[in-house]
Amino acid sequence: MKNQHSGQPAPFPEEGRPAIYPVGDVHTEAGGVVLDAAIAVQRWGELRIASDGSTNIILVEHALTGDSDAVTWWKGLIGPGLSLDTNRFCVMCTNALGGYSGSTGPSSPHPDGRPWGSRFPALSIRDLVTAERQLLDVLGIGSVAAVIGGSMGGARTLEWTLMHPERVRSAAVLAVSARASAWQIGIQSAQISAITNDPEWLNGDYHSSDGYPHEGLAAARRIAHLTYRGEQELDERFGTDAQKGENPLGEYRDPEQRFAVQSYLDHQAEKLVERFDAGSYVTLTEALNRHDIGRGRGGLNRALSEIRVPTLVTGVDTDILYPYHQQEHISRNVGELLGMAKIVSPVGHDAFLTETRQVARVLRRFLLLAADADGETSG
């Protein structure tokens, strides 16, 4: 657990300030190599290391288009006195390998100085965990108190419990499945196609051109956002209303005349295009397509049964993308179940991000149960 460059652990990141660490080459599950990779990370709260090497770190895993700034995208959950109490814990969040917020991804410079582009290897969820584990090695961190994540972050959390169980004392898995379903692969592949069929995609090498697959990424986000929100919520908010000042019921179809829900989706698409990279979107969506904790481990149920890290499982009752029955399946088969929780919300999949009060209760319960399982007092 030493920095391979200096022989000593790297300095711990300053509180609340993004830091980027070189983690060396990352060898992918499929045989590729990300040369000279770097991982971005932020932390809140003071690091404490016990005599046995255990720490008070809670490692928070972000979703598909998230980043290391967890206090922003999980607002109201991380801080002094909050459910992830930074008076007690050191909360850390990395930006996933392949992402677009400081970690090495397709838009990053290759060691030859040009963008990685189409040369960036395909990644699996396990590869994201490998890169994160290499970061902990660089920082000299042997183990963490907990790993917590939702959606793609939940997939990473599951893989942590199987790949490095000796380094994780507890885990909370939210709004994800034990493997990608055919439906998930289908809807996610449609998003990838929207991007790769954009004429400005240029086989992923647009970073070296004057163009950008804007329309493809926007279309992918519209498709995705419909899976993130609940049908009931969208219908109650928008119904068949026209966007203010527009008329979608004219004699001929006019893309400038929209229903209100179309305007909403356009807005969500533009927000993503402004802050995210199309290559990273394709890379991380492909990683989700490859998500399968049973691969090479004797199948799903056997893999789940071998999880000995105390694990809390949480789902959303209206989730279209990762239906609640998928979390029930995890809870029925996981080897060391702390408990099962349900978030009740019309919002759908994104409820694990938006239902702050319910999620806070889930996380507080998780930490109490984890402390009991670890032999600590729960006071």
Rank of each mutant, 00 (worst) to 15 (best):
M1Y: 15
Q8I: 05
P9T: 10
I20T: 10
G24W: 08
V26T: 00
G45M: 02
G45P: 02
G45V: 01
R48Y: 09
S54L: 11
V60T: 12
S68Q: 14
T72C: 14
I78K: 11
S83H: 08
L84N: 13
F89I: 10
G105M: 04
P109W: 04
G113M: 03
G113S: 04
W116G: 10
F120A: 12
S151Q: 01
T161L: 09
A175T: 14
R179I: 07
R179V: 06
I192D: 08
I192C: 13
D198Q: 08
N203Q: 13
S208P: 07
H214F: 10
A218S: 06
I223A: 10
R229D: 10
G230H: 07
D235R: 15
D241L: 10
D241E: 14
Q243V: 09
K244N: 15
Y252F: 08
S263H: 13
Y264R: 10
L265D: 12
L272Y: 05
G294C: 08
G298M: 03
S305H: 01
R308D: 14
L312N: 09
G315N: 03
V316F: 05
H329V: 11
R332F: 09
V334S: 10
E336V: 06
I343M: 00
R364H: 12
T377H: 15
G379M: 10
